[in-house]
Nucleic acid binder design. Structure first.
Length: 476
RNA sequence: UCCUCAGUAGCUCAGCUGGUUAGAGCACAUGACUGUUAAUCAUGGGGUCCCUGGUUCGAGCCCAGGCUGAGGAGCCA
C-alpha cells in the first residue's frame, strides 16, 4: 500500500479512507495513543491502537524515535487536541529505537546539547521547523532572482585567487603534509601541488560574479563560502552560504532598492509558505523569553516582526549622518559607548545596535563609508574620501548585507590596488574587465544563515545550518 | 584571539560556611489505570561530581594549570 504523508491526511482528511502512515514515534500514551511525525509538517498524527488487538511485544517497542508503518482508517477524533486521527488496524515496526541509547526525548533539550547530536536533532520540532523555513528561504532566493531575469552563476569553490581580501582562507593542497616540498628560499613549493600554484577555498564569489555580470547583465551566486577566521561568536561560521547578486549598469541606489526588495520578498515568502513553522518558533521564542530579563526579551512576536519588515520602508542614511546621530545621542553624552565615536571610525557592534535597535527600530541601510575602512573594489565617491558602500543592519542580528557600487574606472582601481598592496599580477583578469567595455555596476553579499536566523528568531547561527562548521567543530 | 560565566545521573538542574551514605523532576524498569494530549499514581535501578595536580584530618565545594561549552568583543556575511 502506498504511503500517505501526514500533511495530506491532516489537510485533506477523507473520513473513512484507509491510509498507510510511515514515520517516527513522538510519544506513545496510555498504551493506545501513538503520535507519529513524518517530517511533511510540524504537526503529528495520532493513531489509536486497540491494546487488545495489538500484540504486547509490539506495544513495548513503541519508544520515541521508533520508525513505524501503520495501516488504518481516518476518522474524526473522539478526543480533544486534534480534528482527525487514524484508527490503527495493523502496525509494523520498521526500526527499533532503544530509549536507553537514544538521546532525544519528548521534553525540552538545550540547544547546546542538541548541537552535540547534530545527526539526530532534525528529529526535534524546533530543528525540523528551522530547516523547513531554511528550505523555503533558499527557494525564495532562487525565485526572487529568476522572476527578475537574473542568471544563477556557479562560481568556483576552489580558487587560485588570493586577492579577495575577505578574511583568512582555508588552504587546498594535495601535497604530503608530512613532507612539504620547499623551494630554495625555504617557502612551500606549490609548483609541485595539484594546481601548480597555491589554492584556497573561496571566501566570496563576488569577483567572478562581476566578470559574468559584465556580459550577462544580471547574475547571482548562492553557494558555500569559507572563512578560516578564529571567530567564536553566535553569528559566524567557518562554512556558510552566501548570496551575491551583481548587476551591470546599477548604481548604489539601484543596489539598495534591490537589497531591500530582496529581503522583503524572502521574508514574505516564508510568511506565506511556512507560517505554521514560524508560529511554532514564535511560541518557542516566547517560552524562552520568559526566563530572560525584561530588557533582553523580544518586544514584538516573530511573525509580527517579519510582517513589519515586509510592510515598512527601510531607513536609509549615510555614514556621516550615522556618526551625527550617534554623537548627538544621550547614550553618547552619558558616555555609555565603550568605543568613542568620530568621523572615520569603523562602526562598532554597539554603535550599529544603537542605531538599529534603539534609534530606528527597523532595518537600516548605511551608505558612504570612509574609503579607508572598506574594500579596494568599492567605488570612490566624488569627495575623494568616501566610497559607494552600503551595509544593511537589522535588529537583533546586526550586519546582514554588505555591498557596494564597484570601482569601474581602470586607473582609479589600479591606484586602489596599490594602496591595498594587491599585486597587479594576482588580479589581472579582474582589472581587464575595466579595460574592455567597463561600465557602472553594483552588487552585494548576504549571509544566508543570518537571514535564516532573522526569519526563525534563532539566536545562534549554529542552529540554522544543518552541520555547523566552527573552530574545533567538524564532527558530522 | 581577548573578557566574563559555566561543567554534578541519559536530559534539565539543586547541593548551605569544606564535614558522615551526593539529591529532585523528566527519561528508563515493574505494577495500577485505560480517550490520552509533555497522561496520572506507586515502587525501583541509575553517579569517573570535566581532567590533572595541590591545600586540608577531610574537597562536588578552596587554589593552580588544562579541556569543553555559553554570552560578549574583535574579524565579517
Amino acid at each position: 500500500m502506498k504511503r500517505t504523508e501526514i500533511i495530506h491526511i491532516l489537510d485533506q482528511a477523507e473520513i473513512g479512507k484507509e491510509v498507510n502512515i510511515k514515520g517516527w514515534v513522538k510519544t506513545f500514551r496510555n498504551d493506545q495513543f501513538l503520535t507519529i511525525n513524518d517530517g511533511s509538517t510540524l504537526r503529528n498524527i495520532q493513531v489509536v491502537l486497540n491494546p487488545e488487538q495489538t500484540p504486547e511485544d509490539l506495544r513495548k517497542r513503541l519508544y520515541t524515535g521508533t520508525s513505524v508503518s501503520v495501516i488504518g482508517v481516518v476518522q474524526e477524533s473522539l478526543g480533544k487536541g486534534q480534528n482527525v486521527e487514524v484508527i490503527g488496524q495493523s502496525l509494523t515496526i520498521l526500526g527499533d529505537c532503544d530509549p536507553n541509547e537514544f538521546p532525544i526525548q519528548m521534553k525540552k533539550h538545550s540547544l547546546e546539547f542538541l548541537r552535540e547530536k547534530a545527526h539526530l536533532r532534525f528529529r526535534t520540532s524546533t530543528f525540523s521547523a528551522v530547516f523547513r523555513v531554511r528550505h523555503h528561504l533558499a527557494f525564495a532566493v532562487n525565485k526572487f532572482f529568476n522572476d527578475r531575469g537574473f542568471y544563477y552563476l556557479h562560481t568556483p569553490i576552489i580558487t587560485g585567487s588570493d586577492a579577495e581580501g575577505a578574511g583568512e582562507m582555508f588552504k587546498v593542497t594535495t601535497l604530503d603534509l608530512n613532507q612539504i616540498p620547499k623551494d630554495e628560499n625555504g617557502h612551500v613549493d606549490h609548483s609541485q601541488d595539484f594546481f601548480g600554484k597555491s589554492a584556497n577555498l573561496t571566501v566570496s564569489g563576488q569577483l567572478e560574479a562581476e566578470l559574468a555580470a559584465l556580459a550577462l547583465g544580471k547574475v547571482y551566486t548562492f553557494g558555500p563560502t569559507f572563512r578560516a577566521e578564529n571567530s567564536n561568536t553566535s553569528r559566524h561560521l567557518a562554512e556558510f552560504w552566501m548570496i551575491e547578486p551583481e548587476v551591470a549598469f546599477n548604481d548604489i541606489y539601484d543596489n539598495m532598492d534591490l537589497a531591500e526588495a530582496f529581503l522583503k520578498f524572502c521574508l514574505n515568502h516564508v510568511l506565506e509558505n511556512a507560517l505554521e513553522d514560524l508560529t511554532f518558533l514564535q511560541e518557542r521564542e516566547q517560552q524562552e523569553d520568559k526566563a530572560k530579563p525584561q530588557e533582553e526579551r523580544q518586544t514584538i512576536p516573530l511573525v509580527e516582526r517579519l510582517k513589519f519588515v515586509v510592510d515598512s520602508p527601510f531607513e536609509r542614511i549615510t555614514y556621516t549622518e550615522a556618526i551625527d546621530i550617534l554623537m548627538n545621542s544621550n547614550h553618547y553624552k552619558k558616555k555609555k559607548f565603550k568605543y568613542d565615536v568620530s568621523w572615520g571610525i569603523d562602526l562598532q557592534s554597539e554603535h550599529e545596535r544603537y542605531l538599529v535597535e534603539k534609534h530606528f527600530q527597523k532595518p537600516v541601510i548605511i551608505t558612504g563609508y570612509p574609503a579607508a575602512i572598506k574594500a579596494f573594489y568599492m567605488r570612490l565617491n566624488e569627495d575623494g574620501k568616501t566610497v559607494a558602500a552600503m551595509d544593511m543592519l537589522v535588529p537583533g542580528i546586526g550586519e546582514i548585507i554588505g555591498g557596494s557600487q564597484r570601482e569601474e574606472r581602470y586607473d582609479v582601481l589600479l591606484e586602489k590596488c596599490k594602496q591595498f598592496n594587491i599585486p597587479e599580477e594576482h588580479i589581472w583578469w579582474y582589472l581587464e574587465t575595466r579595460k574592455f567595455g567597463t561600465c557602472t555596476h553594483a552588487g552585494f553579499g548576504l549571509g544566508f544563515e543570518r537571514m535564516v536566523m532573522y526569519a526563525t528568531g534563532m539566536s545562534n547561527i549554529r542552529d540554522v545550518i544543518p552541520f555547523p562548521r566552527t573552530p574545533l567543530n567538524a564532527e558530522f
